[in-house]
Amino acid sequence: MAEAILFYLFAIGALAAGAQVIFRRNPIYGALSLVGALFFLSGIYVLLAAHLIAILQIIVYAGAVMVLFVFVIMLLNLKEEELGEQRITVWKGVGLAAVVASFGVIAWRALGPAFPQGALMQGDRRVDNALLVAGFGGVKTVGRILYLASILPFEVTSLLLLVAVVAAVVVAKGRI
């Protein structure tokens, strides 16, 4: 029951903050709302026993990435007239309809009778407890996966970040 309350709390918070991101006209409000949404999602991750990811979400996403966003928004310092009018076109309507239809299909699938029910750990509290005891989602278990099973993608990711840093400098600097 407590999990249900927490889930709905975080879920509604995340959706509300996400809606703020989309519909706020000024990007600075959007950025701050996105930070909020990321915090709420981090709570959801904890409910899913993803403790390490939840912490990374706050440190990397809400911390580092969002600072970058805010920094760029401040740098550009867009005036009200520079933001431009919000235009409504037919294609935007088509896109929105397609997005809503996609959501409808996914929700119909997840909530409908076709969703597979025979999964092993579904709602079994004893399994939950056994998982938590085994350290599911903790630093040690996720670390083993990252450094033993996925060492090559891990290293490639570090390379990707390096390339991204260089690329960002080259693109943004204009003249070196």
Partner: peptide, 9 residues
Amino acid sequence: AAEASVGLA
């Protein structure tokens, strides 16, 4: 993170 940095640049 990489995408955001390049995109913002």
